[in-house]
Amino acid sequence: MGLILELNNVNKRFGGVVAANNVNFEVEKGKIKGLIGPNGAGKTTLLNLISGIYDVDDGKIIFDGQDVTNVPAHKRARMGIGRTFQTPRFLDRSSIEDNLKLGTDLFDQMGYINSFFGKKGSDYQHELEDLMEIVGFEVNWDDEISSIPYGQRKMLEIVRCLLSYPKVMLVDEPAAGLNKMEIERVVDLLNLGISRDIGIVLIEHRMDLVMSVCSSITVLNFGQVICDSIPEEVVNNEEVIEAYLGRQD
């Protein structure tokens, strides 16, 4: 099996809150790993630790055979750890085009000087057309990104990530706030990722979605992994059921 990302006994606390407690976690190439758990379980924190936005207190992060625990976030991104955010993060005062080109910039990595002197990068336009066909809507590229609806922004964030050809793609609640049609498009985007052999981590609350696309699922509660298995077993795991039911009262 092609392991691409591995977390060994990762810990992170914020003051008194333990957001990651001895977490072990593995992601394989070309597979979707589900990451579920109640609100505040530490899912987003885990993505932040993997992408380097937060430093781990303790433990190791191995990416593509290399220890990246102390590698700064932007270098991890250049190594191939791409991500989206729970609420999309864009350059609010820039055009949609500039926003998406940042994805291609990340893939090209040609440096400011080369770019300034007009070195040809990858075929942004062509790449983008393919991806826009999947998402199935059109935008005015010169508009500010804040002028388009939330759902479209969420999808464009995945598009931006795919433009950078990451090896691992971390996707934080891509379906939240999207309608049924849009969710299907998101699944198409994820499938494209799989066809490119990207290892995907998917945080999602919609169980039907998680169950249908993930090849394995990790369940977090209070920063701790309480279950790590194939979808069928996860739904029948008692601890998991308890964690979810316990939240409801």
Binding site: S51, G52, I53, P72, A73, H74, A77, G82, R83, F85, R89, F90, L91, D92, R93, S94, D98, K101, L102, G103, D105, L106, D108, M110, G111, Y112, S115, F116, R160, S164
Partner: peptide
Amino acid sequence: SLGRSLESVRDDEIAANSL
């Protein structure tokens, strides 16, 4: 790319990092 990178620094340093 320098211009776009600068814009990302201006609008959202975390997004910039992750790009």
